[in-house]
C-alpha cells in the first residue's frame, strides 16, 4: 500500500552549517564516499569566525529517497548544526565563479573578448597573447561560456564550485 517515491535522479543543492573544527570536512566527505553518494560540487569556507561556523555547499544528484537520506545522514554528524536542502525548500540562487585563461591572437583574440563582453565576464589579466576572464553565474551559464570560448584558445579553467542561498528575507541560520 505504501507508495514508492518515483525513482528519478534529481540535482539538489544542500547548505550544511557546521562547527569549524578539525576533521569536519573529512566527516562530510567520508559520509558521501562511505555511503556511495555522489558529489557534483563541494565548497566550504568559514562564515562566522566568532562562533566558529563554516558553511558547506554540496551539490548531489540522486533519486529522492537518497536525497532524503543525505539530509538525514548529514544531520546525524555531531558537528553539523543545520542542513538545508535548498532545492526543495523553495526558490534559491546558486552561483559559481570560473577563471578562464585564453591564449589566442588575431581574429580569435578579438572574438574571445567579444564573447566575454556579451557574457559580462571581467577581464582580470591580459598579455599580448592571453586574457584571464572572471565569470560568475549558474553552473549552466559557466558551461555555456566555456563551450563558446573553448575554440577561441581556452587553455585553462578553474571553477570555485557552487554556492547557494535561499531567496527572500529569511536566513537559514
Amino acid at each position: 500500500m505504501t507508495d514508492q517515491i518515483p525513482q528519478v535522479i534529481q540535482r539538489h543543492v544542500f547548505s550544511v552549517i557546521v562547527d569549524d573544527e578539525a576533521g569536519v570536512l573529512a566527516r562530510v566527505v567520508g559520509l558521501f564516499s562511505g555511503r556511495g553518494y555522489n558529489i557534483d560540487s563541494l565548497t566550504v569556507a568559514n562564515v562566522n569566525k566568532e562562533q566558529g561556523i563554516s558553511r558547506i555547499t554540496i551539490v548531489s544528484s540522486a533519486v529522492p529517497q537518497i536525497l532524503e537520506q543525505i539530509e538525514a545522514q548529514l544531520n546525524r554528524l555531531v558537528p553539523v548544526r543545520k542542513v538545508v536542502d535548498l532545492t526543495s525548500t523553495g526558490p534559491m540562487l546558486e552561483r559559481e565563479t570560473a577563471l578562464l585563461k585564453v591564449n589566442s591572437t588575431g581574429e580569435k583574440r578579438i572574438e574571445a573578448l567579444r564573447i566575454a563582453d556579451v557574457f559580462h565576464a571581467k577581464t582580470i589579466d591580459a598579455t599580448l597573447q592571453s586574457f584571464i576572464f572572471e565569470f560568475s553565474g549558474t553552473n549552466e551559464e559557466i558551461n555555456n561560456f566555456v563551450e563558446l570560448i573553448t575554440p577561441l584558445g581556452l587553455i585553462e579553467v578553474v571553477r570555485s564550485g557552487v554556492v547557494g542561498i535561499a531567496r527572500g528575507s529569511k536566513a537559514i541560520f
Partner: peptide, 22 residues
C-alpha cells in the same frame, strides 16, 4: 507488500532508508 507501516526510530536517517513508511 500489503501493509501500512508505522516506524518509530530515534535516528531520523533510519526512516525511509530501505523501506518507505506511512
Amino acid at each position: 507488500p500489503n501493509s501500512k507501516k508505522i516506524h518509530v526510530d530515534i535516528d531520523a536517517s533510519s526512516i525511509n532508508k530501505t523501506i518507505v513508511v506511512d
